[in-house]
Write a protein that binds this DNA or RNA. Structure first.
Lengths: 155, 155
DNA sequence: TATTGTTATACTCTATAACTATA
DNA sequence: TATAGTTATAGAGTATAACAATA
């Protein structure tokens, strides 16, 4: 489907300019942009959480299910399902933790690593194209804010 | 459930500092923060899309179903379900469009307007508290970026 | 014919509750 | 007892396909 039609809209009150409620502006922008990013998603292979987990494992090495669930802020059963989907697809594998036999280490496979790379390229094509259209000053503020927002999310 | 536990995590490569892939940093921050905001949600009365639609109608007046679906970037059937839920709860009402009898105007009720106000206050309590902890410089960059991200989402 | 709204249906992601195995 | 993982199940939100009413 094509959900990217134009809708002439009344001037959005740019309230951040006077910051009566910065939180609302940030939350609004974040939710709106998250939905837009999902709508612009080209590849339908991986869900957002699946991609986030696979990318994390690729960069940071094997982790337990509990650790993944805490990092992505979902419950262990939710993460279990995400991991199951990735495992079925052959992108991750479960290994027994040698130190604690209750634990299971989840690790990206070679297939998973290359899949993460390919998805990463496709997934960010739209946003990177949009960012290129910004002025250098705008890009600069987005760049700095990205770091702050990351910290905020993890705080 | 409490999903907000601490997980000591290896230093995240703050790649935005050198900006090899700004899009990835932005998308990552946005998805992560969106999930965090959802996890921190206190009130369970309204879903995110429901709240977004109700707030929009409150601020911008009655709109057709199609317009709402375009604005929120979901399909008409999805928006129909969202509107149904809001209507059942008594927060919006459907009115016939006098000019085009195919259309239906969706408008916030008085109950809906006060609900939007209350939800808005609760919904942004966490993010506003976090933002208060930032340095003025950080808040400034977030403030400017919020506007840019809004434009990005709507572009 | 094209557009708007709707119904029916299915899929994905998330949650809670309850269970097993291990510490 | 407490913790890690899992299974079963339900709810919310989204999508596609197909249809009715109107332009």
């Amino acid at each position: 489907m094509n959900v990217n039609q134009q809708l002439s809209r009344p001037k959005e009150t740019p309230s951040a300019a006077s910051a009566p409620d910065l939180g609302m502006d940030v939350a609004g922008a974040v939710f709106r942009l998250a939905r837009r990013l999902r709508a612009e998603r080209i590849d339908d292979q991986l869900g957002d959480t699946q991609y986030a987990v696979l990318f994390f494992l690729t960069r940071e090495g094997p982790h337990s299910l509990k650790e993944l669930s805490i990092r992505e802020r979902v419950t262990p059963p939710s993460m279990n399902q995400t991991v199951n989907a990735l495992e079925t697809a052959g992108y991750v594998e479960r290994r027994d933790d040698p130190d604690d036999r209750r634990k299971v280490l989840i690790a990206a496979t070679e297939t998973g690593i290359s899949m993460a790379k390919q998805t990463r390229r496709l997934r960010h094509a739209w946003i990177n194209a949009r960012l290129k259209e910004l002025t250098p000053a705008q890009r600069e503020s987005v760049q700095q804010a990205a770091l702050v927002l990351q910290e905020l999310a993890d705080s």
